[in-house]
Design a protein around this nucleic acid. Sequence first.
DNA 1: GACGTCATGTAATCGGTTACATGATTAA
DNA 2: TTAATCATGTAACCGATTACATGACGTC
Lengths: 186, 186
Amino acid sequence: MELTVTGRVILGMLGFEPMSGYQIKRFVDRSTRFFWAASYGQIYPELRRLAAARLIVGTDEARGGRRRTIYRLTPAGRRALRRWLAAPTEIHQTRDESLLKVFFSDSAGSRGTVDALEAKRAHHLQVAARLREIEPHAAGAPQGSPLTALRFGIALNDFIAEWCEQEAAELRGTDESTARIGLSEA
Amino acid sequence: MELTVTGRVILGMLGFEPMSGYQIKRFVDRSTRFFWAASYGQIYPELRRLAAARLIVGTDEARGGRRRTIYRLTPAGRRALRRWLAAPTEIHQTRDESLLKVFFSDSAGSRGTVDALEAKRAHHLQVAARLREIEPHAAGAPQGSPLTALRFGIALNDFIAEWCEQEAAELRGTDESTARIGLSEA
DNA sequence: GACGTCATGTAATCGGTTACATGATTAA
DNA sequence: TTAATCATGTAACCGATTACATGACGTC
């Protein structure tokens, strides 16, 4: 029984506490979304697969006329979660379109790279700000390892923004100096 | 005519110089692969679509008995490339399984987070080393904006490795002190 | 009554990978 | 002659997103 990473995310979420599919989706949207998103179209079918594999069990806990299924880890599910956490991570493909634009930015003329770096910087500043909005002291705020991941996200986005800024400044500097000695592009 | 990002990558590659599908694949494997991969199963069909949209043209340039189609940008293709580079970037979803493990690492016991951070650190050290292997002074080595992207990759992976190391050290410290006063987990 | 939220689900589609097939050329 | 590389392609599959449908509850 091979699990998808999204399946493991669900196990991880249920490791915090029993939840419905809807609650998992909300939780993901407020936390892992920044480094691992999930949609209903993944979550509900995956919950069924996990239940079929006896890694989780769902109990009907309707609220009034609203049906609701709360899922919780089985002992086997908790073992699977621990096994995944202990196993070497094999998926590492990244997709960063803004870096792609930096890579190709020579095709956009002499100011291309500086523009691409500034756009990338703006994006990461925005993400860092949004991550900072996640109150670290309110009730329901991240603690323990989720907090570590949050702090990582903030540090990472700050770093990227700063790197882009410095690099852009440097490129603007060399651009100016080549302009001064008459070597700049038209 | 909406292009996929992989389609733009192909345009970007052909912006450097005319190439065959095979050469594009090799180029990608040595460069953008770290932040945007592409397989033959994407490249060849995409080349056809781009040719059908008149953004690139292919000319038969067989070498001996080996057939070969070299593609180059049309003026419209170059315009599309520049338009993409100038447009705001809309795709920003990241997938980082090793960070996911940090996020959930409380479920792996008291040493979980430290272990997850160390695993993440090891991975990024490895990537940084591989990026450094890309010789910056040999012929065919990255220059201009590709070099900027390479230096970004190195700086980024160095930063992540260092952050993980410091965080792990700090956590080990607090873990020890709680152990000393008798508050550690079994 | 309308809107927002709780709650569950599915069908169509998409972007992408994997695995395979074919065949020529070159170097060991 | 064998292996590596050049070169092009496709079919099956997979994970994931999008868009839609359904319906109950709370509140303005």
